[in-house]
Simulated scan of single mutants.
Amino acid sequence: MTTLFSAVEAAGAIAVPSADSDKYSRGVLGVVTGSERYPGAAVLGVEAASRTGVGMIRYLGPERPAAMVLARRPEAVTADGRVQAWLLGSGTDPERDDDERARLVGLLDQALPTVLDAGSLDLFAQAKGPTVLTPHFGELVPVLSAVGVETSKQAVAADPATWAARAAAETGATVLLKGATTVIADASGVRFLVRAGQPWLATAGSGDVLGGVLGALLATHQPALAERPELLAELAAAAAWLHGEAGRTASGGGPIQALDVAEALPAVIRRLLVGA
């Protein structure tokens, strides 16, 4: 059954720390995003994750994006170590060398909850843990082609719910198909529609922010995901709702940029928790 996701459901996805919480129990997100060509994607994703409530972020991407991440978020850690979830691919190119591919496949072998975005969408078949794919219409086409299903960006745009459900069924992943109405589908079909947000959100880097929000939610809910796999679609929908509402808050009816959306997240979450 398809549900229009609401603020009440979004509030339930926020992991509120207790007096006994520490940075590890609050969730550690591993991030491999950004590139020499698109370093800002790393900054935006880390910024969004840090403002969604994760306990620690390990950024393990290239040198130039890493320097930019640390300049913006000095609390980020650039050393390898324990994580509860991965965010991979934002601002990267799928045309990677063999060493980088082997490295990413090694991370996926850990079977942790994972967000595959942009340049890592092609790795869905190697993912061992609960996985969310976050394509836009054009990016869904090669994902489907990889499993023998041919379509076009125009066809996906004309019927996103059908194609999101098809992609989820064929790949075994949860699919968050970005658009004016975001569609979340898993093996059971289309689970949620999210209509939060407004047209000013159609700006460069907006999807990188969404990836960071979703990565943080997966990291903070890793133990629960092991017990309730269906929670993955709920967290994907919550991320889309938070992203959209942060865009609305940041905009106030006027133009915004992606970093504005990330910076608005704490206020949105605070209002949700007060309301809950």
Rank of each mutant, 00 (worst) to 15 (best):
W86S: 05
W86D: 11
L87A: 08
L88H: 06
G89K: 05
G89A: 15
G89V: 11
G91W: 00
T92F: 07
T92C: 04
E95H: 13
R96L: 07
R96T: 11
R96Q: 12
D97S: 06
D98P: 15
D99S: 15
D99Y: 03
R101S: 10
R103C: 10
R103F: 07
L104Q: 04
L104Y: 07
V105C: 13
V105K: 12
V105T: 13
G106H: 01
L107G: 03
L107M: 10
L107I: 10
L108G: 05
Q110V: 11
A111W: 08
A111D: 14
A111C: 13
L112M: 09
L112R: 07
P113G: 06
P113W: 07
T114A: 06
T114W: 05
T114K: 05
V115G: 00
L116P: 02
D117H: 08
D117L: 02
A118M: 12
S120K: 08
D122V: 07
L123Y: 07
L123R: 03
F124L: 14
F124V: 09
F124H: 07
Q126S: 15
A127Y: 01
K128H: 04
K128V: 03
K128P: 01
P130Q: 13
T131R: 04
T131I: 04
V132C: 06
L133A: 03
T134D: 03
T134K: 11
F137W: 08
G138A: 06
L140V: 01
P142H: 14
P142Y: 05
P142I: 02
P142V: 05
V143H: 03
